[in-house]
Nucleic acid binder design. Sequence first.
DNA 1: AAATGGTTAACTGATAACAATTAACCAATT
DNA 2: AATTGGTTAATTGTTATCAGTTAACCATTT
Lengths: 237, 237
Amino acid sequence: MLSDIHQDTLAAPLNRTLSDHIAERLRQAILTKQLAPGQRIVERDLAEAMQTSRGPVRDALKILENEGLVIHSAHRGTIVAQLTIDDVEEIYSVREALELLALRYTIKRATDDQIRELGRIVDRMAEIVQREYTQNEATDLDLEFHRALVQMSGHKRVQALWEELSSQTRLLLLTHRLKHPMDLKDIGVDYHRRVVEAVSDRDTERALEELHKHLRASFDGIVGGVTDTQTPADEGI
Amino acid sequence: MLSDIHQDTLAAPLNRTLSDHIAERLRQAILTKQLAPGQRIVERDLAEAMQTSRGPVRDALKILENEGLVIHSAHRGTIVAQLTIDDVEEIYSVREALELLALRYTIKRATDDQIRELGRIVDRMAEIVQREYTQNEATDLDLEFHRALVQMSGHKRVQALWEELSSQTRLLLLTHRLKHPMDLKDIGVDYHRRVVEAVSDRDTERALEELHKHLRASFDGIVGGVTDTQTPADEGI
DNA sequence: AAATGGTTAACTGATAACAATTAACCAATT
DNA sequence: AATTGGTTAATTGTTATCAGTTAACCATTT
């Protein structure tokens, strides 16, 4: 019988190409600061380290370049991107524009079931607040909420652009929160809850307003009081 | 003397790599419908046609994939993208979100000189309206205005994302306008003029409103009355 | 006739070798 | 001392070749 075959066996056609693997490993290395901002990435060395050839490595670097995690210039090579305070503002402003647009579509298109799913993500945030949690967990759950919101819009281009930005977002959130641990109650639960309620009521204006307030608060929490906009984000925030 | 050297000699460091050349030629081929939507692109054949090897061709295809002009899936190859009415709505909604965001920054940051430059683009539109002009010229000038607006924002990420979208925008504008030629007065001059005036007055709310009205009118001009959202844009609009 | 299974041709994914460019270094010059 | 010019090592851009995957085709079976 078909149903005897485990779901995963069907769902995983092992379609991922070698470039995707390498891109994922590199992405993790950058997010965990094993590769420092500004550090040079040499294709041959990386290929050797990954036990592969330069072709897939070049493809992987192209992927990361699109995500803004590395910067490439012709004949000169590739370096790990450095985020300045200006970049943080850029990332947040674009994120807000994309998420507000997505929200309009989500309110129009999401089923009640999907919106309940959104509520369950917030419930999980409320749960882990009660016990021990790492900033890593908190950030993942935070992003999971926003990703779900964008996914439910059904807007393919917004989804794609948001995913491109998400790596940079995660990088700057982690960078900041590891230095200045935050109470998840402040950054997440309440704001998110209010967004879900407005979406559930299909109240577009209120939902847009709540999401705007949340993102603004999150942004202020990161750059609060910083004036030197040229300093790399590692030092400056 | 330095000034004896012609400007172009300095400005063109011949930095463009082969991949960029191929991407540009392919882009033109797609925009001029020499490559039809849905048509398969075979790497080896393209390399031969371009008198080069598959490496640069693969790089070029990655660039076009980012711009949404082609679609690639692993082991199966690359095809020229087909735009449906749904895609047109997606492109316009994202464009609007990005351009409205850019506009806020442009009003804050652009110098009076830059704003006058914007006015001169509108003047050129007004001029060619008086004489013969092709839909191609009209579309280029239209996009040039919006590009300038986005460039003046100084917002690197919005600039990059807008450029990614611009190829698709140009494709759908040309596709439509070649079938239904439009009077440039309707699509451009007046709307653009009002945006420039609002920017010149540094009146953010009015500028946002005018740009919104312009984009909405442009969108309606394309999809007006179409209900079958799945039909490829070539047939449907 | 429709569905299944095996076979093959076409094509992409990956590797390895070669060519072109850059940047660092040092000597010579102003 | 700063600038220019040539030289070289390191690294990327490009080409050429091999390996793995897909999809079309045809024979076979139900």
